[in-house]
């Protein structure tokens, strides 16, 4: 047993023990009152009856969930069959988010690696460049993308002018545009955590692997990737979770036909066509999906520590 540790990474320092603990209360109160209670209320709302002008009637009902999963005919009296409309929107969202995560990883890992292995001033500049988009308003970035890929936007004009194509590429309002938007929105979220992990990577491990006859590729897959895995997993979560509930990219780039969960939920709370219980139910289902992913993540992280 060593002498008492001087630094307490777990935060067991106790300079203010006794009188310091109440300092946590404001955070509890604010988050508890304005986030935990609202989420609980959302759960309640998802079991209420819809009011036609928006809002709810305080009457228990499972019709929101019923509507989500089952189709009972136009008048609600046919034998129920599975309703695919909303499930397929969810499925498309998961698929789009997954694909965006994969694409971000493919570009993000080499970028993070490259930046983390620069030295001195160079590294600062690269890091600076990669951080700026991270701080730029997401709405503005999405609008920029929309502007760029319009049918008569700069991208098409460029391709037309060099004669690569004879008529404009139709990108906007397709699944591909949404994918591009998600990828573009969350790419910096992939780079930064991986960068942090590579920063801590001990290059003596690469040297040891090379010394033991591993090729560069083998070193990458057998030594580097497993070592920086926590960073990669964190990056994937940071891309996947917001992509899943994304609203701006599908709304601005995907148009009406390429709905994702975010737009579906948003629609329920806008104007008279809305359905609050249904929106609350869809939100609960989205939240459950995210919690499943996060639980998987938490498990993964603790496993990595052993």
């Amino acid at each position: 047993m060593a002498e008492l540790p001087k630094v307490n990474p777990e935060g067991s320092a106790k300079t203010y023990s006794g009188f310091g603990i109440p300092l946590i209360f404001p955070a509890w109160i604010i988050i508890g009152f304005f986030l935990v209670i609202p989420v609980a209320m959302m759960l309640v709302y998802s079991f209420l009856t819809k009011e036609f002008r928006g809002g709810v009637i305080w009457e228990f009902s499972i019709s929101a969930y019923d509507q989500f999963f089952l189709y009972r005919g136009l008048f609600g009296d046919s034998p129920p069959v599975i309703e695919w409309t909303y499930i397929s929107i969810f499925w498309r969202s998961i698929w789009q988010a997954g694909l965006a995560t994969f694409c971000c990883l493919i570009i993000g890992f080499p970028t993070a690696w490259f930046i983390a292995t620069r030295t001195g001033r160079n590294k600062t500049i690269w890091l600076f460049l990669i951080t700026i988009p991270y701080w730029v308003n997401l709405l503005i970035r999405t609008i920029s993308m929309k502007f760029l890929i319009r049918d008569n936007g700069p991208l098409n004009e460029f391709f037309l002018s060099i004669g690569l194509i004879s008529e404009p590429f139709h990108i906007i309002n397709t699944n591909f545009a949404v994918q591009l938007g998600l990828f573009y929105s969350y790419l910096p979220f992939m780079v930064l955590p991986i960068y942090a992990a590579v920063e801590r990577y001990n290059f003596a491990l690469s040297e040891a692997a090379a010394d033991l006859y591993a090729s560069r590729t083998v070193t990458l897959f057998k030594v580097i990737l497993p070592t920086v895995r926590p960073g990669i997993v964190a990056g994937c979560i940071l891309v996947f979770v917001p992509s899943l509930g994304a609203f701006l990219a599908p709304d601005l780039l995907g148009g009406a036909k390429n709905f994702m969960i975010g737009s579906l939920i948003e629609e329920q709370f806008k104007g008279a066509a809305g359905n609050w219980p249904f929106g609350a139910a869809a939100s609960m289902i989205l939240l459950s999906l995210v919690l499943i992913v996060l639980t998987f993540y938490a498990r993964n992280q603790t496993k990595g520590q052993i």
Partner: peptide
Amino acid sequence: SFALINLPLMVPEIVTAVATLIF
């Protein structure tokens, strides 16, 4: 407490938005 502080990061923005509106 740690989970609570980080909760706003874990809940998707659109869900927070819906929950807050409902609240």
